[in-house]
Every structure is written in structure tokens, then in C-alpha cells.
Amino acid sequence: MAFRAAVITFPGSNCDRDMASAIEAVAGSPAIRVWHGDAELPDRLDLIALPGGFSYGDYLRSGAMAATSPIMRAVVAAAERGVPVLGVCNGFQVLTEARLLPGALLRNAGQRFVCRTVALTVENAASPFTAGYAAGETIRIPVAHHDGNYYADAETLDRLEGEGRVAFRYAEGCNGSARDIAGVLSANGRVLGMMPHPERAIEQAAVPSLGGADGRRLFESALASFATA
């Protein structure tokens, strides 16, 4: 059966097409596009993806308004039933605002919007989203954000590290994130939030500086882990 993934579009999302395109490239079937005002998700989903962008113009706080939208109530309920959720960039901000992941994303420590490809270290290669990587591997994925500075109190950070819930760390300075955290997993490993954009690293470009394929294995891992037979 075809892999059933939904990509949620909020007003101001701008990476939703990239996300849908990446999922289709890897899964071989198109993602279902869902609008923020929809109260219900399609049934039997194998993955819900929250894309990057500036939902609701980042009013109040990045992700805060989206977290109150009707579709997010359905996403929270689905996540609580164990439906896998991937949030990238603004999607990660929405997941923290919706309290599906701990912590918050503050303004970058350097005050600047950071838009470049960064090196990441794969910290946990045993999760359903990261099983295609090797633990400790360095990968290169683009970032493009203003509010990517991950914050949680020391106790929460210790817990996340102790439980293997740090999926990725920045291997170079990026945005001032606590303990260089770039991606965080839920306790059951089925919700992943990350600031870097794996959907922008799906194909190796002929000119290496134009992009690599290190993000592809994240989608391949999700497909292998979550596809219903």
C-alpha cells in the first residue's frame, strides 16, 4: 500500500511544497496536502509533516498561532495515538508551542537570520527517523531561520540527553542552541522536530555547493519505519 503522508500548510508556510516533493521523491507516492483550517486529518496516516516557513507571520512567537489552529488539535491527538510527526524549522517551533516536544526556540544568539548549509552530528541513529544514519556520523543539511536557538532548562536537557532524545547536534556554531541541539525526539521516538531542512537535501547537485543528499536518508528511514505493509 502506498505510503500515506500528510503535509500541513499554514498561512505563511513556505516549505510545504519542498516537503511534499521530498516525500514523493522517496516514497514514490504523492503526499496529501492539508490546510490549516481543516479540523480533521485524513485517516490511516503513516506520517504527518509540519513544514518550514513563517506561519501566521510569526505573530506573538514563532509557531504560537499555528499551535492554536484547528488542524493542530487533530495533529496533537494523532501524535498521542502514535502517528509519527516530523516538524522542520517552523514545524519544530509549532511542535514546541503545541507542547508535543519540550523546550522552545529563541531568537538566534547572534541576532541574525542564519541561511547556509551546516554540519550536523547524528547523535541517535536508533530512532525511526534516523535509523538510516550511523551514530556519530557528520552530515550536511541547510538551515534557514531566525529563531532556532533551542532552549530548555538544565534538568530537561539532561533528561533529553539521558534518554537519547537528541537526534542531531550542530557540529559547528549556528544559532546559540543549548548544548548545540539541532533536533529533538519525543519520548516514544515518533515525533521529531529539527531546525535544519532535510527536504532541501534530497538530491546531489552536479555542483556540490548547490546541495547534497544527506537529508534523503531521514525520509528513507521514516518510510522504512512507518510504512504500513
Binding site: 492554536t68 508551542e97 519540550p102 522552545a104
Partner: peptide, 8 residues
């Protein structure tokens, strides 16, 4: 619920 994010 909305106006403040009590995490930060």
C-alpha cells in the same frame, strides 16, 4: 495557553 510561553 497563548500569550506567554511559560517554558521561557
Amino acid at each position: 495557553k497563548l500569550l506567554a510561553n511559560t517554558v521561557i
